[in-house]
Design a protein around this nucleic acid. Sequence first.
RNA 1: GGGCCCGUGGCUCAGCCAGGUGGAGCACUCGGCUGAUAACCGAGGGGUCCCGGGUUCAAAUCCCGGCGGGCCCACCA
Length: 1062
Amino acid sequence: MVKVRSLEQRFEPKKYEEEVLKFWDSAKVYDKVRESLKNSKRKYYFLDGPPYPSSSIPHVGTLWNKILKDAIIRFHRASGYSVHDQPGYDCHGLPIEVQIERKLGFKSKKDIEEFGVEKFVEECKSFALQNVEGLSRSFKDFGVSMDWDKPYLTMTDEYIESAWWLVKKAEEKGLLDYGLKVVHWCPRCETTLADYEVTEYRDLEDPSIYVKFPLKDNPKKHLLIWTTTPWTLPANVAVMVNPDLEYSWVDVGGEEVLVATERVEAVMKEAGIESYRVTGKVMGRELEGLRYVHPLEEEVDVQRKLKDAHRVVLSKEYVSAAEGTGLVHMATGHGEEDYKVGVQYGLPVFSLVDDKGFMEREAGKYAGIYHRDANKLIVDDLRSKGFLFHEGRIKHRYPVCWRCKTPLVLRATRQWYIRVTQLKERFLEEAGNVDWVPKWAGYSRFRNWLEGLRDWIISRQRYWGTPAPIWVCGSCGHRVVVGSKDELERFAGRKLELRDLHRPWVDQVVLKCPKCGGEMRRVPDVLDVWLDSGVAFYASLGYPKNEEKFRELMPVDLIIEGHDQIAGWFFSLLRCGLIAFDRSPYLRVLMHGFALDEQGREMHKSLGNYVEPRQVLEYEYGSRDVFRWFVLKNTVWEDLRFSWRGLEETYSDLNILWNVYYFATMYMSLDGFDPALHRLEDYLDRLKPEDRWILSRLGKLASTVTSSFKELNVHKAARDIRNFVVEDLSHWYVRLVRPRVWLEEDVEEKKLAYVTLYHVLLNLLVLASPILPFTTEKIYRDAFYGEGLPESIHMYSWPSGLERFIDEKVESEMSVAREIVEVALSLRMRKGVKIRQPLPALYVLTDSPDAKNAVEKLRHIISSQVNVKEVKVLESSRVRDYRRYKLTPVYRALGPVFKSEAGLVAEKISSMSDQAFIEELLRNGSAEVEVNGKRYRVTSEMVQVSEEWLEGFFGDSFSHGFVVLDLRASERELAEGFARDLLRRIQYMRKELSLPVNAEIDVSIWVPADMRKYVEEYSGFLKSEARCRNLALAESAEGVAGDYRREWEIGDFKVVIGLRRV
RNA sequence: GGGCCCGUGGCUCAGCCAGGUGGAGCACUCGGCUGAUAACCGAGGGGUCCCGGGUUCAAAUCCCGGCGGGCCCACCA
């Protein structure tokens, strides 16, 4: 133990935060914390969601994510949990590849192949590692205390093996398959994307055309279809109608077109056809099998070769009359629904767009043209052949590649996929067992997402990713899925000397087919990056190779990510958990919001509204802890609107916290307070009410902060700490104890203040440490730390047992006193009476026994804060001793009743001072007055009642009655007021001179002759309060002595004060 | 078309789960202060709690409908 030392007065967070970072590093604080918790029986498996290291600088939203995790981790550590706090990075995939392609100026996969896949993969790896380092630095710099020396990286061989294990598991369960799937395809990246990777949309303008498909048997009749993708027409194989809809044949001048009845009017209108006639109606189901001629069969050879196509098929599901014509053009190779229905009807499936988006050779006339460019040609041809019914344009939201922004193509390609739809029941079951914060995120959002579960296409046609562990025989087609490098070596029959498991090195491994002896080569695909992050819960622990940690830690206790991860990581983890272990890998999810800019927009570099950590630190009112407190106060699951103004306000709060600690530690240090010699437990029975009150407030704070952290409502904890520091501690408790710490002698009431303050302030440091790790460490190290105490505030255990100090009664009493003080100060102000001017008395008029008790007990507080000599409690009814009612006539009500005599009555009312009369009027609703011998009955509507305080008194109501001030200051009180005015000026001058608190001075004063006696009378007071050894009254203003002289105005008087340091 | 979230003073928000006299900060107006803090302190003005209906003794809070803003899914693709 050691005596409390004073903090420096200057609040300089930027400076001390750097010091604290150095200290944490050199003292290895967090290593020590981890070590000390290692043998705790209470494990806490926190799984970090891996960001893509596609840039080395995070934005404030990413920082918020990490700080939120850090605060919760810190709370759990302090609570005695051994927290698994390993951060992670998702190092593979398009996010990395697209950046490298940009850097190297590549436009297509061909460029990569020419450059060399090896070199490309090395660039990706190096880039990822670089960014991992940069990101880690930034997070660490903001006090994120995870274990940055050992992040899990999805690109290591060990990690890849764990991912392979999952694919093997799927194979063993018969869930893995290969086949034709209609997918979103990026023609620039030349790879498939998953549906949930289709997250970016652009408003594009496309053709919106109605095309006539002539019937085979009657070229005068046409099926009318609508499409916004003319480039898919060359691949048309059928037309879909709804069996339950009614269709109409419409004569449009020499030929007929078929349209759903409901859509006739709208379609004719859009086509600008005013003269048309319905010639017949037919139900959709009757149209099945009807044949037509493909309008472009002359231009597209393949269409002439198709058998059993170009007919009407039925679908209830996919055809509606909401839009279009009610007849849907089917290109089975370019739409998932088209594909599905097409398969049911045995229709051919083919796509006429290649990997790069160009029309294939089979597209005939349009071959080699980029698909979007082919639109114009196709439309021109339809027009010239007379098949174009109407041409327009449409603006719609169109999906683009999430990484390179190229518009996507829907096309049928062969892909590897896992049939997770077979596990749908288990998905819903297991999801129901997870605890979500907020609740609705789980039971509505996530559940709703799971309802639309689809098979998982795991293959991607790229380079920098986990290679698909699938080898296929070139001779017989037999396949082998391997779950580890060891297993691969067993199949290869030799030790493999690979650079690592990435492409292109793993591509060189050729196996011998166990079935036919032929050569087996790996399929060229890499795996979906969401598989990489989905296996993190076991792969980061080295499972299945290493089971120890896995057994120790599973299941994951908590994951925390933003609301975009509903369809992302939260889902991917669950998916992998079910495939591999038939259960959810995690118990609890916290879903947070997004960080938006000041206008409420998402932050993007391209928008120029991206705020970086460096900018926060450079801001005048920015610092690490200011930023942490600011973001943590935001409701966790709601979006955060970033605000420079908000930072400034939080800076101010942190400044107040600092000043409270400065105040307390400065005076404790002055008095050599040693906490070891004065323990709170020994003083409990002698504490003053305000001491009990602050201890009770602390007890409540500890309780709410603890439960808020447990419930993951971190914003509540952050707000409660702010309110405690600013409202309870600074604005009230410090204000009350100030006179006690100024006492010269080593008296008990000063000791009590110190003991209470020490207890409160040390415990507050621990409670605030997850949110404000820098500031709490700085204060602890500078003021409280000493021999035999924990080296760091972050080595303290979470406070417990503070609730025993909760005292509802003292809190309730203090609320009453506080309210009375507030009302009284407001009264003073309204009357223009300064607080410095002592007043004779304050009366509390109340009938409430509780309020009465409160005032009796806390009389000293009320009296000192309001600056009155006496505080008295009286019954409410005594209010009549201090104020009277006053009546004002309401002419509008008097006139109709008293007519010509109304004026007389009004005059009587105005001058009425009989309080008994007024009280009767109020009580009964009416009363009689006499004017000139005649009596009149006056009702309450005829008058307006107001109140008037008696001369020398002023009051107002409060919750339990009235507060009244006696404003009749006596000469004695005026003198005291004057003395206090003098004191204030002296103290101000001391401060101007930057004198230490305990420095002694000589004072020389000149005041007007009338006031000299007051100075003489209060000279003792002034000497002691101002630490004044000599106090001299000068005969003239010019005769005032001192190194520093100054003239002051006090009320109507001029005075001169001179100071000299002894 | 379906799902979820949000709507409270000029601005930013708390309160809603668990119904009981409408709150906080900033801004604004006024006052200033006993030496922790003027990056401050005190007091005050400012509210149809989005709109309508219902339940209830009582609704910002619970229920229903509507309007507005945001996000996700589906369709156009």
